[in-house]
Write a protein that binds this DNA or RNA. Structure first.
Lengths: 339, 339
DNA sequence: TTGAAAGCGTTACCAT
DNA sequence: ATGGTAACGCTTTCAA
């Protein structure tokens, strides 16, 4: 592979001059610049990032760790990151951590080795023990670069972040159910160990309270963001005979479990029970399955995260910045019973 | 950030010795090794990949370009790549090309700049003009590193590849429809500009021929792998009044468009019309929607691609290697009419 | 077994 | 405006 030295030789100038035109430095005569540019073009020369990074002591790459790339929600985040990265001439090292803390640790190590100049992280949901959580925070600090957290939270450390309007999403979904005439309200929560689950639940409770409605304990189904649990809880509820008017499902997996159970019982949403989910489920639209939800633009979350980290990298540190991408209400009819 | 020099200083040895323990070179006394390891551990030292790569003139990173990460099929491929990469201590630069040839070109440039030692590419489907296709092949060659193509094909250049059993998937789907008693068969093809679409179609035709059945031209619906086209074609067919017994849908998007149209017409698959799709659609299982298909393990495609490229990087070049990941028949009942 | 020094491909400073 | 040169952090060769 051709080097700057050979370019200089071919153009009849010094390495310094070549470097100057590469870096758009003004102190180059038009003649020299043109000669160099010609050679660069002809030889298809591209400087070695290794050498540049080493010399400049900074890299034009960032790292991104994502818990499950096969979940299109995270795929979209990655897509958004990639989009902005390309515009700004940054490369991104991408790691799928499979929701495993161990793999996340490994990814962090490798990113340190690569000397990335920033990290975008959607953490695994597995750092429950305090000791482990502490070590995790240490490795993050140890990286010594700007960090932007996406979607899920990392406790005990003030980091920039891009989050969904979690509480608001719960509030909006619930209010809308109420507006549509539902009085007996239920929710299948997410894993309440996680802040995003608690926040969504909080929004639910607030909306119920604001409407002056009573909350029945047995209609608070404690789920964990998994399909299976949501399915089981819904089934139990439906079989108990006491059915709420409307229900909020805390994320897309929860919605799926709920829908499965409802379907099995031969019931129909928007007729026998009202529902608004948090998160959209693309295929349902495609199949023209009327499912109302509170959605978000996850691709935009990735874009915002990437912009944020570039900002940090370029303008150094200042106050913690936290973005919230708005939630968007999409009504299809399932928010109202008796259709 | 701490360097090898400081580690050497702290351990009371030379940089050379530190380098030796880093590279697991045997010519180091036990005493020296232990001192060095202690310092490395205490200081949490990790060598700079820049410097190592520059010095060794090779990198421990590969590039991956993917057309649409928000499509979980490609997300799974990326997940598989990431999985094996981690095991083998490789980092991967990931680019979402959004199915745009331009962005793909840019990605290739950036990967050249990063001096990756290999490329895994699922090409965009946009290189129709010969001139453009040629320039594309040139940039691939210009990279000067091993390349593994995944899923889609690149014409006019012999590259290692990991593909789906396309023809077989069409054959199996069709045979199964026939076995279930369907005589009047239809297919919604993919974009026949693409080899994977032609191959699947070929499998379909072969199975029909092998069964000694007649093929009606009007039941060959020329789609393009998009939901919308499949929807339109299906709708037209259903409205024409002449409906086939069974149909093959050429990929997941095609299946969705088909299902949408069928649903709109108030028909039911497995009752009014039989269908087997190529590619699975996860959520349908979850919703317990009986949809038979011929599926594949796309995560495995990523794993195989990564193993293949590492092999190339480590063992140099030899004969072209092409892998085919097997297709798997999943019957749910929709392959038979009248249920 | 060890260390010194040259070299990897750049940038940046200092002269000119 | 231009070139020479040290430096970036590592590996590798050569001597000892």
């Amino acid at each position: 592979m051709i080097t700057i030295k050979e370019v200089a030789l071919l153009a009849g100038v010094s390495k310094s001059t070549v470097s100057r035109v590469l870096n758009k430095n003004d102190n180059v005569s038009k003649a020299a610049r043109e000669k160099v540019e010609k050679v660069i073009f002809e030889q298809n020369y591209s400087p070695s990032a290794f050498a540049v990074n080493l010399s400049k002591r900074k890299s034009s790459a960032i790292g991104a760790t994502i818990p499950e790339l096969d979940n299109s929600f995270f795929g979209e985040i990655m897509k958004g990151i990639s989009e902005v990265a390309e515009e700004r001439e940054f490369s991104v090292f991408c790691f799928d951590t499979s929701n495993s803390a161990h793999r996340e640790d490994r990814a962090l190590q490798m990113l340190k080795h690569q000397r990335v100049s920033g990290l975008i992280i959607t953490p695994t949901s597995e750092r429950t023990e305090e000791e482990d959580a502490r070590r995790f925070r240490d490795s993050l600090n140890n990286l010594g670069v700007p960090i932007v957290v996406v979607d899920r939270h990392i406790d005990g450390i003030a980091l920039d972040g891009v989050y969904y309007e979690n509480e608001k999403s719960g509030y909006v979904a619930t209010s809308e159910l109420i507006k549509a005439g539902n009085r007996k309200l239920a929710i299948i929560t997410g894993d309440v160990q996680l802040r995003i689950a608690r926040d969504r639940f909080q929004g639910f409770k607030q909306a119920v309270a604001d409407a002056g409605l009573e909350l029945d304990e047995k209609f608070i189904l404690k789920g964990d963001f998994s399909i299976d649990t949501a399915y089981r809880l819904t089934k139990e509820m439906l079989e108990s005979g006491d059915i709420p008017d409307g229900i909020v499902t805390s994320n897309n997996r929860t919605s799926m479990g709920f829908l499965k159970a409802v379907r099995e019982k031969g019931l129909k949403i928007g007729k026998d029970i009202a529902v608004i989910g948090i998160d959209s489920i693309d295929i349902l639209d495609i199949l023209d399955y009327k499912f109302s939800c509170v959605a978000r633009d996850s691709c935009e979350m990735g874009r915002v995260a990437m912009r944020l980290i570039l900002d940090r990298i370029e303008n150094g540190t200042s106050q913690q910045i936290v973005h919230h991408v708005p939630c968007e209400l999409i009504l299809k009819g399932s928010e109202r019973k008796g259709n």
